[in-house]
Nucleic acid binder design. Structure first.
Length: 896
RNA sequence: GGGCGCUUAGCUCAGCGGUAGAGCGCCUGUCUUACACACAGGAUGUCGGCGGUUCGAUCCCGUCAGCGCCCA
């Protein structure tokens, strides 16, 4: 016996264990089945399951389970990412709480700590994914820093270097002063900051009393100014171009240069140029061959060393500047502004709101800094990736995201891949004492190269930096399959079928996998990229800890079960839309899980179970044929929706069929049969009920794996835990489905009309009345007779018979097809209300007729619209007019 | 500033050339022997504004407005 309610907490862990132990999630490289591959976007090893994971993983699991049921050899590749900065941050914080820090313990010891931490806490997210029901092939789980993947990283680094696609360069980088590392453009986010625009007066050399005013948002960098730029066409400053200014405080002579970078509309039209601390200034500096002294160090503190030689007491204040050495950038700003004010060199200070680049992890303003870093030639690698999307070798769903991809890829900058961190893949480059670099697969190989090159053994030092986390993530689609070895897995599961991820990760990850995949595998890494939205709260706000609107998927699973959460996600995941998730929505969908459970209890009470001998094609009763046919349509709808990545439509189609058709109508129609005598009809209805319920369980399994799997074995459809491996349903043959549909449609219409009339007349369900048919055809009378039990029950009727003689007094009347149905309700009926009801129905029919008449009266419509559309309108008009006539007759009948 | 998306019932959203829909909420009734996490019924819309194309526009095109996101 099934319990009164479904208890997810008891069922979910048991079934998941069963699946996992039985190897139900495993792919089979040796099988001839067509592969279906999804690479998990590896969550951070530090992470725990948040609602965004629940969205993306539910989608991936739905696809995987569905394709697996379709007979594909499904591989959903699990794994986690070492997440360089994020993980190092977590462990550093942990150490700090114990009064330790990484620098004093040294690299080896620190890394030891990280690995220990990973061993202890790193498995959290994989345990949580199991709670969601994710059918990942766990024995194949990989980690971006495990041995195989590290080998792949080195192979790629060395190869790209050999090919000239990876190189060292001294350029400005985004420097994060908190983490003390370079970060890529993508790890920088602009934030609006309310600051000031300082107007500083720079004296013109040799012209006492004359100044050129520059406007700047960063006065502290003036120590590193090497020029002032004005627009070549700017009349105001034309005579100053070529002349020199005296840089205040420093005393250095700096030129006024003409450069189109300077915008005459902005500020004063004259900009100070600090090439070592601003990306635009860097370009100006290059164009004009200017020196590039750095005046801020790795901690973003003032560093005087590189300008020390330029300090001059003439026009400057060397003591003041020297005293700034080691002062934090923001403190230095205050002091410099104050000093300039004393010197009356500040013309004005305007409030100014502007975009300031911040490190996305540290949250502090990044500092552009001139350093030596490793770069990947993204421009070259991007070209084939762009082409692959242009030619459709990889297609985005929804399509519009291709624009985002193209926009980024066509304007891609060199990718800075070195990070001044300890946790990550250490760069395989070794330096000789003279600085010569040897990129190699191992220290021994580097030593070999050095010997060959230099003719002697030299002491080599390995580059201390590690690679950007996304460098190894970019290789994920093939490194997880054993590359660079030629494994059977690599041959079978590359390229992947679909990549599922959020739009925020297109640049970070999708673009880079495309580049690396194509370059090293000669083939795109996936055929489709399904981009889903973000999970937001009910009001559409982003979830954040500070807003306090974060939803915890595990808590939701505890409260409502994984099936309810997953189905909710499916139902809300439309194309190109964010998912607005509220607790209430999950609660509502738990109602659907319960509904299925209760339908199952009904079947159980009526002795209905899997009838493996039932043959749909041999069904003779209209009810069986009708429900089998409706099931066929549900299967077609669900399949089409999943093929189109329309998870909302899949959920809606399954829901509609299960609740609206199977439960609301089929079960109700079946009740009289099931309560009646045993016989062939009853046996057939039981068979169909069991058959279609099995279809429902299969259709819903991808979205609601647990409740469906539980019911599957409880009803004997298969062994416990076997639904996951059961074939996805197909259409079954049904004889004369058309006729069955027409018949049942009529019964449904009759019951609906009678119910409506009764409800509007406020007739209590306890009052039952006969239904008198007027003007009914033979077919209708036959149908009424055949369905008398269901009509009695669902329309609260005592009997259905043709009207004999005149209409009794006090009838409610409804029109169903060609017949008028009368409900003798003399005792309860309110004639005025009944008249109003009929008049309203007539009004509706008349409005309809009027609209169609106008259309058909339009000669252009009749002449130009397709024949079938015109014909259809004629039919509709006839039907509406016939209904009006019947309603008129009904009104006339109660008039007197 | 450039680009993308959105605007349909009170709310969340489908529909995207030929009869305006769903779920929730709301209102009314019901313990009808699977289910009150239920059943039955009902009300609610100038489909953002203005033009255009078309026999016909919620749907296509243009434009304006508001909202959101991404990139500068």
């Amino acid at each position: 016996m099934l319990d009164k309610t479904f208890d997810p907490a008891a069922v979910e862990p048991r079934l998941y264990d069963l699946w996992e132990k039985a190897g139900a999630f495993a792919c089979h490289p040796a099988s001839p089945a067509q592969p279906f591959t999804i690479m998990i976007p590896p969550p951070n090893v530090t992470g725990s399951l948040h609602i965004g994971h629940a969205l993306t993983m539910s989608i991936q699991d739905m696809l995987t389970r569905w394709r697996r049921m379709q007979g594909r050899d499904a591989l959903w590749q699990p794994g986690t990412d070492h997440a360089g900065i994020a993980t190092q941050m977590v462990v550093e914080r942990l150490l700090a709480s114990q009064g330790q820090d990484r620098r004093s313990m040294g690299r080896e010891a620190f890394l030891q700590h990280v690995w220990e931490w990973k061993a202890q806490s790193g498995g959290a997210i994989t345990r949580q994914l199991r709670r969601l029901g994710a059918s990942l092939d766990w024995p194949r789980e990989r980690f971006t820093m495990d041995e195989g993947l590290s080998k792949a990283v080195i192979q790629v680094f060395v190869t790209l270097h050999e090919q000239g696609l990876l190189y060292r360069d001294r350029r400005l980088v985004n420097w994060d002063p908190v983490f003390q590392t370079a970060i890529s453009d993508l790890e920088v986010e602009s934030r609006e900051v309310k600051g000031s625009l300082w107007h500083l007066k720079y004296p013109v050399a040799g012209e006492p009393g004359r100044f050129l005013t520059v406007a700047t948002t960063r006065p502290e960098t003036m120590l590193g100014d090497v020029a002032v730029a004005v627009h070549p066409d700017d009349e105001r400053y034309r005579d100053l171009v070529g002349k020199h200014l005296i840089l205040p405080l420093v005393g250095r002579r700096i030129p006024v240069v003409a450069d189109a970078y300077s915008d005459p509309e902005k500020g004063t039209g004259a900009v100070k140029i600090t090439p070592a601390h601003d990306f635009n200034d860097f370009e100006v500096g290059r164009r004009h061959d200017l020196p590039m002294p750095s005046v801020l160090d790795a901690d973003a503190r003032v560093m005087v060393a590189e300008i020390a030689a330029a300090l001059s007491a003439v026009g400057g204040d060397p003591d003041f500047v020297r005293a700034l050495d080691g002062v934090d950038r923001f403190e230095a700003r205050k002091r410099i502004v104050a000093r300039l004010q004393e010197l009356e060199l500040v013309e004005k200070i305007e409030p100014h709101t502007h975009q300031v680049p911040h490190g996305d992890r540290s949250g502090v303003p990044i500092e552009p800094r001139l350093t030596m870093q490793w770069y990947v030639d993204a421009k070259t690698l991007a070209q084939p990736a762009i082409k692959a999307v242009e030619t459709g070798q990889t297609a985005f769903v929804p399509r519009q995201w291709e624009n985002t991809f193209f926009a980024w890829m066509r304007d891609i900058q060199p990718w800075c891949v070195s990070r001044q961190l300890w946790w990550g893949h250490q760069i395989p480059a070794w330096y000789a004492p003279d600085g010569e670099v040897f990129v190699a697969r191992s220290e021994a190989e580097a030593a070999e190269m050095a010997r060959a090159k230099l003719g002697r053994d030299v002491a080599l030092t390995r580059d201390p930096d590690v690679l950007d986390t996304w460098f190894s993530s970019a290789l994920w689609p093939f490194s997880t399959l054993g590359w660079p070895e030629k494994t059977p897995e690599l041959a079978k599961y590359y390229p992947g079928s679909v990549l599922v991820t959020g739009f925020d990760i297109i640049f970070f990850w999708v673009a880079r996998m495309m580049m690396m995949g194509i370059h090293f595998m000669g083939e795109v890494p996936f055929r489709h990229v399904y981009i889903h939205g973000l999970v937001r709260d009910e009001k559409g706000q982003k979830m954040s800890k500070s807003k306090g609107n974060v939803m915890d998927p595990l808590e939701l699973i505890d409260a409502y079960g994984a099936d309810a959460l997953r189905f909710t996600i499916a139902a809300l995941t439309g194309p190109g839309r964010d998912v607005k998730l509220g607790r209430k929505r999950v609660e509502d969908h738990r109602g659907f899980v319960t509904k299925i459970w209760n339908a199952a209890r009904f079947l159980e009470m009526n002795g209905i179970a899997a009838d493996l001998g039932f043959e749909p094609a041999k069904a003779t009763s209209p009810l069986a044929r009708w429900v089998l046919d409706a099931g066929n349509r549900a299967v077609a709808e669900c399949t089409a929706a999943l093929e189109a990545y329309r998870f909302d439509e899949y959920a809606a189609a399954a829901y509609r069929f299960t609740w609206g058709t199977y439960c609301d109508w089929f079960i109700e129609f079946a009740k009289p049969v099931l309560n009646g005598p045993d016989g062939p009809e009853k046996a057939e209805v039981k068979g169909a009920a069991g058959h279609v319920f099995g279809t429902i369980l299969r259709l819903l399994h991808p979205a609601m794996p647990f409740v469906t799997e539980e019911l599957w074995h409880r009803f004997g459809y298969g062994a416990e835990g076997s639904l996951i491996r059961t074939a996805w349903p197909d259409a079954v043959a049904v004889q004369d489905a058309e006729a069955a549909r027409a018949e049942l449609d009529w019964v449904v219409a009759l019951i609906g009309e009678v119910r409506g009339a009764r409800a509007e007349m406020n007739v209590p369900p306890s009052v039952t009345v006969p239904l008198l048919l007027q003007g009914a055809s033979g077919t209708t009378l036959a149908r009424a007779a055949a369905w008398i039990d269901a009509i009695r029950r669902l329309a609260r009727a005592t009997e259905v018979k043709p009207l004999d003689g005149a209409a009794p007094k006090g009838v409610a009347q409804v029109v169903v097809g060609e017949a008028t149905v009368m409900l003798p309700l003399a005792d309860v009926i309110d004639l005025a209300a009944e008249r109003a009801r009929l008049a309203k129905a007539r009004g509706t029919a008349e409005g309809e007729a009027k609209k169609i008449r106008a259309k058909l009266g339009n000669a252009d419509f009749v002449a130009r619209a397709p024949e079938e559309v015109v014909e259809e309108n004629r039919e509709r008009l006839a039907a509406a007019e016939a209904e009006m006539a019947r309603l008129d007759a009904a009104l006339a009948r109660i008039a007197g």
